[in-house]
Nucleic acid binder design. Structure first.
Length: 476
DNA sequence: ATGTTC
C-alpha cells in the first residue's frame, strides 16, 4: 500500500480522508511495515465500504487486513438502521461465525510431550477434517431447526459438552433471533452430515503450549501460565454458512439496485437493515452463527473423548469461544451518544473491554479473551479486550496472521511433505488429510503474527496476554 | 471459506 495516500495519526493508526462517495473516513490500524506490505486492494475496499449508506464513524481495517470479497478480511463497519444502514453478506464473509475456542487441559507440557505421537494419532482419527468431511451425526429436518435455533446450547442438551461451556461462549452459546425459515432447504441439506467436522483451508485443531505471558493479571484471570497445555479449535459453519452466503449475495445484488443503492463494487451487495431481505439475511445469518457454535461445541466433545483415551487426567475446561465473521447488533457510544448499531466484523474479533456486562463475572475485570490464531508454525496469541482510553473500532481486534501470499502461489513455493518434515524437526506434529492443504497453509504464506498482535496492542485494540506455540496440529 | 465451477 502507498503510504502517501494515508494521513498518519500515530505509529499504528492511519486515516483515509473522505473523498468521492465516501461518507466517513477509512482508518487502518497497523505499523508502517505491515502497511507497506498490505495489499493496495485493502485501501480500495475500505474506501468502497466507507461509501455505503448508514455507515457510522469510519470503515476500519485491522493490522491483519487483506483483500476479501467486497469487504476486506480484517474489516469492521457499523451501520445505523435508522439512517438507512445496510447489512451485507460480503461484510460477514462466506464462513458465517468462523471462530476460535480455546480449552484448558489442566496439563503441563512435559506430561503431554510424552504422549504427543499417540495424542496426534487419536485426535486425527477422532476429528473429521477436510473438504466435504462428514461426521457420525445425522440431523433430521426437525433436529436441524432445533440446532439452528439453539446453537451450542442445543449441542450441550444433546450431550455434547457441559453447561459450564455455555458461559464461556459468546452469546452464552445461543444467538437470539435465528430464523430457520430464512435458511434454504439446500443449505440445511448440505449441513445434515457436517456437524462436528473441522472443514479445510485455515481451519485446525491444535494442541498448544503457553510459551510467554505478557500480562500476569489477565493471564491469572484466564487461568494461563507458561508451560500450560491448551487446545484451540478454529472452524465455522461449514456448508450451511457458505450456502447462506452464496444465496443472499445474489439476492442482495438485486435488492441493492431496487433500493437505489449505488455500489462502487458489485461485491458490496447489501440491503437496508430495515427491509425484507435485510431482515431475512439477519435471521439466516444468526442461524448460521448457531450452527458454528454448535459445531465447535461438538468438536469440543470429540476432543475431550480423544484426550480421555490418551491422557485421562486431562480436564478440558473452556477458556472462551469467540467468532470473527459476524454482524452483531450492539450498543456503542459514538460522539457522546449511545447508539444501537449493527457491527460487521469480517476477519475481525469482538474485543469487549473490562466491565462489559455480557462477560462472565470471572472474566469481567480482565476483559474478554481475544483469540488470535496464527499459522501452523508461528504460534497464536491470547489477548484481552482493552478498556482503557475507550473502545476502538467498535470494540474489535485482529483475528489472525492474515495471508501474505495466495494459496496458488504457496503451492508453487512449498511441498506439503517438506512443510510437515520441517515442522516435525521443531517438535510440531502436523496431521492433515491434504498435503496440498499443508503447502497452502505453509507458515511462510502468512504475515508475521507477532507484528500483527504488537500493532493491535499498540493501537489499543486489545492487550497482549499470552503467546501459544503448537505441539500438534490437525488440519483438513 | 466452499460437495475447491449450478
Amino acid at each position: 500500500m502507498d503510504l502517501h495516500l494515508l494521513e498518519k495519526v500515530n505509529d499504528t493508526e492511519w486515516r483515509i480522508p473522505p473523498h468521492g462517495p465516501m461518507r466517513v473516513p477509512g482508518v487502518l490500524f497497523a505499523d508502517e511495515t505491515l502497511l507497506r506490505e498490505m495489499d493496495s486492494k485493502v485501501y480500495e475496499q475500505l474506501c468502497n465500504v466507507a461509501g455505503l449508506p448508514g455507515i457510522v464513524e469510519a470503515a476500519y481495517a485491522m493490522p491483519d487486513a487483506h483483500w476479501g470479497y467486497g469487504f476486506p478480511i480484517g474489516g469492521v463497519a457499523a451501520f445505523d438502521p435508522r439512517e438507512g444502514g445496510v447489512i451485507s453478506a460480503g461484510g460477514v464473509g462466506f464462513d458465517i461465525s468462523c471462530g476460535v475456542r480455546t480449552l484448558h487441559t489442566g496439563l503441563k507440557r512435559a506430561a503431554v510431550e510424552k504422549h504427543k505421537e499417540t495424542l496426534a494419532a487419536v485426535l486425527y482419527n477422532s476429528i473429521p477434517a477436510g473438504v466435504g468431511s462428514t461426521g457420525s451425526i445425522r440431523l433430521s429436518a426437525r433436529e436441524m431447526d432445533a440446532m439452528l435455533e439453539g446453537g451450542a446450547r442445543w449441542a450441550v442438551e444433546q450431550g455434547y459438552g457441559e453447561a459450564a461451556d455455555l458461559e464461556r461462549t459468546e452469546e452464552h452459546g445461543c444467538m437470539a433471533g435465528a430464523d430457520t425459515t430464512r435458511v434454504s432447504v439446500r443449505a440445511k441439506e448440505r449441513q445434515k452430515r457436517e456437524m462436528g467436522t473441522l472443514g479445510s483451508g485455515n481451519h485446525y485443531l491444535e494442541v498448544q503450549q503457553v510459551v510467554a505471558v505478557y500480562d500476569e493479571a489477565a493471564a491469572g484471570a484466564y487461568g494461563l501460565a507458561v508451560g500450560d497445555v491448551v487446545v484451540s479449535i478454529h472452524c465455522g459453519s461449514r456448508g450451511l454458512g457458505h450456502q447462506i452466503g452464496t444465496e443472499y449475495l445474489k439476492e442482495m445484488a438485486v435488492a441493492a439496485a431496487r433500493h437505489g443503492i449505488t455500489l462502487a463494487d458489485r461485491e458490496l451487495a447489501c440491503a437496508p437493515l430495515e427491509s425484507d431481505i435485510g431482515r431475512a439475511y439477519l435471521g439466516a445469518m444468526r442461524a448460521g452463527i448457531n450452527c458454528a457454535l454448535a459445531n465447535r461445541q461438538i468438536l469440543t466433545h470429540l476432543t475431550r473423548r480423544a484426550f480421555g483415551h490418551v491422557l485421562p487426567e486431562a480436564r478440558l475446561d473452556l477458556l472462551f469461544d469467540v467468532s470473527h465473521n459476524t454482524c452483531k447488533e450492539e450498543n456503542h457510544r459514538v460522539a457522546g451518544r449511545d447508539r444501537r448499531l449493527f457491527v460487521h466484523r469480517k476477519g475481525a474479533t469482538r474485543a469487549f473491554g473490562p466491565g462489559h456486562p455480557s462477560l462472565p463475572p470471572e472474566l469481567r475485570v480482565a476483559g474478554q479473551p481475544v483469540i488470535i490464531g496464527g499459522s501452523m508454525g508461528t504460534g497464536s496469541y491470547i489477548l484481552a479486550g482493552a478498556g482503557d482510553g475507550g473502545e476502538r473500532a467498535f470494540a474489535s481486534a485482529c483475528h489472525g496472521a492474515g495471508r501474505s501470499m495466495s494459496r496458488h502461489q504457496a503451492t508453487r513455493q512449498w511441498r506439503g511433505g517438506e512443510v510437515v518434515k520441517e515442522l516435525a524437526s521443531r517438535g510440531i506434529l502436523i496431521r492433515s488429510t491434504s498435503l496440498r492443504g499443508v503447502a497452502e497453509e505453509a507458515p511462510g504464506a502468512y504475515k508475521d503474527v507477532g507484528a500483527v498482535v504488537d500493532a493491535a496492542h499498540a493501537a489499543g485494540l486489545a492487550k497482549k496476554v499470552a503467546r501459544l506455540e503448537p505441539m500438534v496440529c490437525i488440519k483438513g
